[in-house]
Design a protein around this nucleic acid. Structure first.
Length: 246
DNA sequence: TATATTTGACCGCC
DNA sequence: GGCGGTCAAATATA
């Protein structure tokens, strides 16, 4: 990165807005990289907590050791999602390729919801300690022949490395349009950007997010099948925001 | 046989 | 006590 920095900056007019912006971007990348390195060096508390809970379940509750383990688990933090930042909400005609590999770890019937909710975590959760998760739930539609819709919610940021894999946090597509709506809390309408519908800037995260349109013949597919079926030509931008470390 | 998914149980929060 | 997120044994699949 330093080499690239030294290569790029001398080319630009040092007093131009462009140079300032490039300098700012390099600083952000440096800052983010150093935080990731320090995170990886210090380790991952969630694994420690998982081990503690594992022992607690296997050993029963009536001994002193388990009491100590419970107390330690409390110190490390709750396994519930309360403290994990909600990154993105997406409504799509069918689950789609988002560039990451997910592993399903649960499914739950939610009260007052017609369809069950599926829980996924990053496939690199164990290997790299990536804590990103997502939930997928089919929306209840009016049932008059309209396509099925799915709510996809993302939690936590990816810290995993996926060399050589597609990672379209911002993607281009061969389709002319995308009808999918991406929203974050107060976002309520679709947008048009570069001639592609459905690209929306996330207010808190700052990245553009786009989902390709789903062909009708894919709408009966489930997540994994959909991932294999959809075709995306894509490129990406840096994906890790600083505020995940807050 | 290894890996992924399913599903009932567990657990923390409200 | 109910709800929803997660765990982990059982099961399915390649």
């Amino acid at each position: 990165m330093i080499d690239l920095h030294d290569l790029v900056l001398p080319i630009l007019d040092p007093y131009s807005a462009q140079a300032k912006r490039v300098q700012q971007l390099f600083e952000e990348v440096f800052s983010c990289s150093s935080k990731i390195v320090s995170y990886l060096e210090l380790g991952d508390n969630s694994r420690k907590q998982a081990n503690l809970i594992h022992y607690k379940r296997k050993g029963g509750k009536n001994n002193v050791e388990n009491h100590i383990l419970e107390e330690k688990a409390k110190d490390i933090g709750s396994k519930r999602r309360k403290n994990v930042k909600h990154i993105e909400s997406v409504v799509t005609q069918a689950p789609y390729i988002d560039g990451y590999q997910w592993r399903k770890y649960g499914q739950k019937q939610i009260s007052k919801a017609k369809y069950s909710r599926s829980y996924y975590r990053c496939a690199y959760n164990k290997e790299q300690g990536c804590l990103a998760t997502k939930t997928v739930q089919e929306k209840q539609t009016d049932g008059n022949g309209t396509a099925r819709l799915f709510n996809v919610n993302y939690y936590g940021q990816h810290i995993c490395k996926m060399d050589g894999k597609i990672h379209p946090h911002v993607a281009e597509t061969t389709h002319d349009s995308a009808t999918t709506v991406s929203h974050h809390q107060n976002i309520s309408s679709t947008s048009v950007y570069n001639g592609v519908h459905g690209i929306i800037q996330d207010e808190s995260f700052g990245n553009l997010f786009m989902v390709p349109e789903t062909p009708e013949y894919f709408t009966d597919f489930i997540d994994g099948e959909m991932a294999k079926a959809l075709e995306i030509t894509s490129i990406n931008i840096p994906l890790i925001s600083e505020d995940i470390w807050a």
